[in-house]
Design a protein around this nucleic acid. Structure first.
Lengths: 253, 253
DNA sequence: TATACACATTAACGTAACGTCAATGTCAAT
DNA sequence: ATTGACATTGACGTTACGTTAATGTGTATA
């Protein structure tokens, strides 16, 4: 039986390019060339190809395969053993690489955590300082020196997890407020939910809660330009909406 | 501090070609080019090179390294983890290869042993048949049917090791005979050594020994053209020399 | 019979990370 | 002026094909 290059390539599952390359490097020549210059292969060539593919599977390079299949009485077993040793060496190398990459990842993560922690501490400190500068007086007047000190202490002792929770809660307040604002009804479900989330936030932030302080604070959000702009940023009127919602919320308590 | 390409290459332990290549692919450009077109590197470039080499040690390719060191806030840890997984996959692949090569070696060795054993059995059978055809009658006359049967049985049950020993011993007889023949003295040390080796050979071959049979056998070597030619092949007269040596040897017993 | 389509060919470039020339220019010391 | 160490660019080689281009062949169909 004779085969064209396509036939063999499909039989063996290799590309025709591969077969031409094998012809080129002399590892597998076609049985003959027909009058049009086409490569024609026979059964024998199929057998040789199978052998080549077998050794290729074992990761031999084509030069070695050529030696193995072309030299009669070539010491195949010796070649296999040598290849085996090379593979062991390769594995050893990869094991070392894996160990080093592991080590590197560990170190980088540790350092990253430390840098994060550092940044977190710095961030907290800066936030308190900023707050002092901006609202120190008002807050002190409203809640007294003691409350401010206690709040700052609590803030500095906050763990990162708590910090993240606080942040998340703050975002949730904003999100819910946005949705609630669309309803236009501070007394509605969403409006009251916003007020409740805000209460939670205050509790986390100040470590204490009173409906009066809550109502006063949100009133301040409206009166003070700096707070108002924070809430009104996306939807003007949000600060007033929040105040109204909280007023209704606190009156129900 | 400024460095020429040679200086940096020696500092970092890489070739100048490597540095030129790194310049070419844009992973490490020199700080400046001087008026003669020489590459001039600074401290910063040394740091970058160290980084490159570090990742190169971990088997990153230069494209990845380029990304890592050139993109600010590139997710290094993620890259490391991905690389780590690739290494694990590579190890997995090598483990499979190692297993398959092991299996192949095992099979090839087993088949080789079997083929050897087969050939060995075939060889023994053929040897006995040949002997029967050539010398069957004479030997039967000399030693009787029983002895021949016993001998053949022993021969067929011979292990390969024994077979090798026998072969070796046979060669040693020939070698020693060759040396002894040069002395021209069958009664001399070498001549008697030859006789003694020949006795051992007979014992192994026939499982039995008698000085008379020994002397008779060597006489036959001389009388029978077919045996004589085997011994006289290289040095004519060797068969007679052996007979004489053995005669002296057996008379001393 | 012209055409369309599958299949064939050779030739060439591209891949990754340099090693290794070759041809040629520069610097410092003698 | 010469020598020797050092610099430059340019180009090929390495492995096992993939991919593309330009072109020829075989066969079925309109």
């Amino acid at each position: 039986m004779e085969y064209t290059i396509k036939a063999i390539s499909q039989l063996a599952g290799v590309s025709t390019r591969t077969l031409r390359y094998y012809d080129e490097i002399g590892i597998l020549k076609p049985a003959r060339i027909n009058s049009s210059g086409y490569r024609i292969y026979g059964e024998k060539e199929i057998d040789i190809l199978q052998q080549i593919l077998f050794y290729r599977e074992l990761d031999f390079n084509l030069d070695s395969i050529k030696e193995i299949i072309q030299s009669p009485n070539f010491d195949e077993i010796n070649a296999l053993k040598q290849h085996y040793n090379e593979l062991l060496a390769k594995r050893q190398r990869i094991d070392t690489l894996i160990y080093n990459v592991e080590k590197t990842i560990f170190n980088k993560e540790r350092r990253l955590k430390m840098r994060d922690e550092e940044k977190f501490q710095g961030f907290k400190k800066k936030l308190i300082e900023d707050n002092e500068k901006k609202y120190g007086e008002e807050v002190r007047e409203e809640y007294g020196e003691e409350a401010v000190k206690r709040s700052n202490e609590q803030f500095m002792n906050m763990t990162k997890q708590q910090y993240n929770e606080l942040n998340e809660l703050g975002n949730k307040v904003l999100e819910t407020l946005k949705e609630a604002y669309k309803t236009g009804n501070p007394a509605g479900e969403l409006g009251q939910k916003t007020a409740d989330l805000h209460r939670k936030w205050i509790t986390l932030c100040w470590g204490d809660y009173s409906p009066e302080a809550h109502a006063n604070l949100t009133q301040m959000y409206v009166d003070d330009e700096r707070f108002r702009s924070y809430y009104d940023k996306e939807q003007p009127g949000s600060a007033e909406f929040l105040r109204d919602a909280v007023k209704i919320y606190t009156e129900k308590i």
